[in-house]
């Protein structure tokens, strides 16, 4: 393991002089090597120790992190086009899954923990995604009209942004907590809400809180995007006879697209992270594993929750980067 660490360190130091491509290869070798090494090592360990022993990733995890960072950096430097990046990413995932399928990791406790929870894992992953999608949906539902309002009536803009800003600073756990009491009162008073499954705990307050958090980045992104379309461009469009609808669809929307996408990116990534806190109020999601793991001193269970959350965030980031690249190329 130390050898692998050393190798990773070496690639880190010498990287400036190496070509990006070589770096990606080297990092890939380290990544797969340390994964395979970890699996192999775990298998060896398992043969000699009692069956209750666990082989954790430990320092190998940081080696992996360094390798992944090195790859990301090399891609950044190499300035690869998007298809190339997708291919490289896919190649890594393919390698990973091949190793998993070959049973290389079977003796790692992380993998054991994962296979123990495989059924719940898929459910919780879907619930997590559901929370994120619902929050984004409601945020769009409220945020778009709110943006229109703020664009039309500049007088309220300050007030709207100030209140959303305050909302944004409230820690997630506090907002979740504060919502419990009124929500449970509400469902006590209104039986039809209870029938819908809306309660003081569970997904309903989680989605409300996530929606509230999403509003500021969303409205701010949309607002800057649409308000910064140059006046001359709009004047020119009016001058050649564009109507309000045409203006919006043909001129304002495409020009504002990068800012809109940036807003959506922040909303999505933030929601992915915050949704894991929602497990604390019984909303489910990948956070369930994290907090269960912490509560039961099952550290690998923590990773079963935390690693997919990070992967989801990185994937979302990558996806929006790609969209942003497309939107910018059009300009």
């Amino acid at each position: 393991m130390t050898g692998l660490c050393g190798l990773a360190l070496l690639s880190f130091v010498r990287r400036p002089k190496l070509r990006s491509f070589a770096t990606i290869l080297a990092a890939a070798l380290i990544l797969w090597g340390s994964l395979a090494g970890a699996g192999h090592f775990a298998a060896l360990l398992m043969q000699e120790s009692p069956p209750t022993a666990r082989a954790s990733l430990g320092p190998a995890f940081w080696t992996l992190a360094v390798a992944i960072l090195a790859i990301a950096d090399a891609m950044q430097r190499g300035n690869f086009v998007i298809p190339a990046r997708v291919c490289i990413g896919a190649a890594f995932c393919a390698g990973f899954f091949l190793m998993a399928a070959a049973g290389d990791f079977d003796d790692l406790s992380l993998a054991k923990e994962f296979s123990n929870n495989r059924g719940i894992f898929v459910t919780e992953l879907l619930r997590h995604l559901g929370l994120v999608c619902a929050a984004t949906f409601f945020a769009l539902l409220i945020g778009v009209p709110l943006t229109m309002l703020v664009l039309r009536k500049t007088a309220v803009a300050g007030f709207v942004f100030a209140s959303l800003g305050i909302l944004q600073t409230i820690p997630s756990i506090a907002l979740f907590g504060v919502l419990i009491a009124p929500m449970s009162k509400l469902s006590e008073q209104l039986p039809f809400l209870r029938d819908l499954g809306i309660n003081g705990t569970g997904p309903a307050p989680a989605i409300i809180a996530l929606t509230l958090y999403s509003l500021l980045p969303l409205v701010r992104g949309f607002y800057t995007g649409l308000s910064e379309v140059a006046r001359e461009v709009k004047d020119a469009a009016t001058a050649i006879g564009f109507g309000a609808r045409q203006m919006f669809i043909e001129v304002e929307l495409p020009l504002a697209m990068p800012a809109l996408l940036s807003g959506l990116r922040v909303v999505t990534i933030q929601a992915i992270g915050l949704a894991s806190v929602a497990a604390l109020i019984g909303a489910g999601g990948l956070g369930t594993f994290i907090f269960q793991g912490i509560g039961q001193y099952a550290l690998d269970l923590v990773l079963v929750g935390a690693l997919p959350v990070i992967l989801l965030a990185l994937l979302a980031n990558f996806f929006f980067e790609m969209l942003l690249g497309l939107a910018r190329r059009k300009l």
């Binding site: 954790s56 992270g273 923590v302 990773l303 935390a306 690693l307 965030a313």
Partner: peptide, 28 residues
């Protein structure tokens, strides 16, 4: 020489959910 790397790390690092970072330090 390290500026692009620092930019990439800072950008990627900020996409890590804080809760996940917290969860990752506990095993260590």
């Amino acid at each position: 020489e390290f500026a692009p790397m620092a930019g990439a790390i800072a950008a990627t690092g900020q996409t890590f959910p804080p809760v996940a970072v917290l969860a990752l330090t506990i095993p260590v």
